[in-house]
């Protein structure tokens, strides 16, 4: 079986692997790199549990091949906290009871992080539309929305963040 050699920056760290072309990105992360925070909840790119950032844009890693990530940068839930300091979204999900079983949570946080990069001060409607590709079976979304609102409040005041978000939109 022919394999391809790929180099992927995962959570800031250069990683390499020899993979079958058919290997899904989510399996590269989970089974090869042992980053099991990214979950699999469906086969049809509906549930969003596998959401990661690929070159800064949110993506469903069950619907990407590992080889497509060659030369690119991937951020997973494991890359969100800085040591003991939680990302504001992680803190907000905890504070606002934005999770119950925790299975959709990593994908939800990754999608929310992308959403807040695009729109630092989203309305409730924009938040709900922004996580339309992420299914949660436990929370009824109410506290997920509140979590994202809390994090938006904490992330928003910085001038740098606003500039960075604007730059992302243009790029």
């Amino acid at each position: 079986m022919t394999t391809k050699h790929i180099s992927v920056t995962v959570n800031g760290e250069a990683r390499e692997a020899d993979v079958e072309p058919r290997l899904l990105l989510v399996h590269l992360l989970r089974d090869v790199f042992m980053l099991t925070g990214t979950h699999i909840g469906c086969d049809t790119s509906n549930c969003g549990a596998c959401t990661i950032h690929l070159d800064g844009e949110s993506a469903k890693s069950c619907t990407l091949l590992a080889v497509q990530a060659d030369g690119k940068s991937v951020t997973t839930i494991e890359g969100m906290a800085s040591g003991a300091t939680l990302h504001p979204l992680q803190q907000a999900f905890w504070d606002q009871h934005g999770l119950q079983c925790g299975f959709c949570t990593p994908g939800m946080i990754m999608q929310a992080a992308w959403l807040l990069k695009q729109n630092a001060d989203p309305t409730e409607t924009e938040i709900r539309a922004g996580i339309a590709g992420n299914l949660c079976r436990c929370t009824g979304y109410v506290n997920i929305v509140k979590s994202i609102q809390q994090a938006a409040g904490e992330l928003a005041p910085s001038e740098d963040a606003a500039t960075e978000a604007a730059a992302t939109i243009q790029a």
Binding site: G37, I40, E78, T105, P106
Partner: peptide, 14 residues
């Protein structure tokens, strides 16, 4: 919650 928000839960496929 601290384990889940960090992606450090231990689900069966992990």
């Amino acid at each position: 919650d601290p384990r889940f928000i960090r992606g450090a839960g231990q689900f069966i496929d992990d």
